[in-house]
Design a protein around this nucleic acid. Sequence first.
DNA 1: AATCAATGTTAACAATGTTTACATTTAAGC
DNA 2: GCTTAAATGTAAACATTGTTAACATTGATT
Lengths: 222, 222
Amino acid sequence: MIKNTYHHGNLKENFLEIAFTFIATHDVEKLTLKVLSDATGTSRSAIYRHFKNKDALIALMIERGFEKFNDTMAPVLTNPNAPLVDRFYLATKTYVAWAKEHPNLYRLLFGNAYAHLRDDIIDINDDNSLTGFGALKQAIEEGQASGIIEKKSSHTQAIIIWSSLHGLSSLIIDNFTGVEEVSSELYDAMFANLLAGLITNKVKIISTIPLINTILKPKDTL
Amino acid sequence: MIKNTYHHGNLKENFLEIAFTFIATHDVEKLTLKVLSDATGTSRSAIYRHFKNKDALIALMIERGFEKFNDTMAPVLTNPNAPLVDRFYLATKTYVAWAKEHPNLYRLLFGNAYAHLRDDIIDINDDNSLTGFGALKQAIEEGQASGIIEKKSSHTQAIIIWSSLHGLSSLIIDNFTGVEEVSSELYDAMFANLLAGLITNKVKIISTIPLINTILKPKDTL
DNA sequence: AATCAATGTTAACAATGTTTACATTTAAGC
DNA sequence: GCTTAAATGTAAACATTGTTAACATTGATT
């Protein structure tokens, strides 16, 4: 089938694909309709046959972005074959690594620039919303049930954990850490800090990760 | 002295004042030259007599913004009359409260939108840079010297603390917490978590804040 | 084959940041 | 005090951007 130059075939998905490719290397604010039309060889207004406006395209990017994010995060937290503490540890590293790998997408999902669009897409109080927050809360509640984690508000505990992850990720991708490359010691130290505040010390905690067993050794006391 | 309508008198400072007033209630991205010229009753291009371009005005806002931020944070961390742990506790609350009170300014200083300007203004590795980071590191080192805080890299520990503060502040002002008003219990819980990971348990810690003394009680152990 | 919905184009618009040429005011030097 | 230059402001024009309206082309349905 010979392609004609008029009807494109799958322009909508093409726009999205180009947009995601673009923000892999550029800030979202640099994504203009001209970028999209040049890359597809169409006119600047062609996009309006497939999206109500630019915001609608960005909104779909946010939606798909959260799906990608959740596809990475959820399996780590829910893996039935790993001890809970190990899952938390891996989730910490996975979260920050994802932000580092997709800094512009991460900012689009969790930053302020398109917050007005995000509010129609995700709901932090809906555990089925693809923010990873529901999975985090569930993991915390699992830890509470087995006596590993202090029995406090899982919502509060989830916010505390998320604050650390979001904060570190943001500081890294916005170049605030003062170092070229963030060391794996930093992740480990942050995780150790988080763990220290969450665990009960009343139940022996099982982990297959040597580092975690080192972290869990009780401190010398007064 | 009768004012003429041509020469304005102090247009540069006027622009800045209006800009800061504007972002008290609007996002920085809504701050246009028209907003400034309308408010001063000048033409849109008048600004170019006082700033090289819009970025130069934003850059000065960032500079002054960091001064304001530092004026709030530094005294809390260096107050010679408060025990170290109390200072950390108050700094936590002060940091988040400042972000909540100046959300758009906070995003301008610590967000990504104008990161290219910020890099010429502050240096995270320069303790005299008005980011508060130097003061935080010094406070940590003070705690290490007196045996309260684990003797690890103060830079790493500062990043860990800052991650929590920056993360929580960002989640709050970007409406990610899932609650109308963040409870003071959340701050306290986050602070308790941070403290648990930092302190040594080898030295008796003095605090005038009842909450902190509750936090510091050793957990029941296995 | 005729018709219509889907899809694309061109031209125009307003808003924005910016530059250039020009106008007005202030200040300095004589 | 007058002249002149520097400082400060304006008006007009430009490119870029998102957007809309009128028009053109294609493909599918009948």
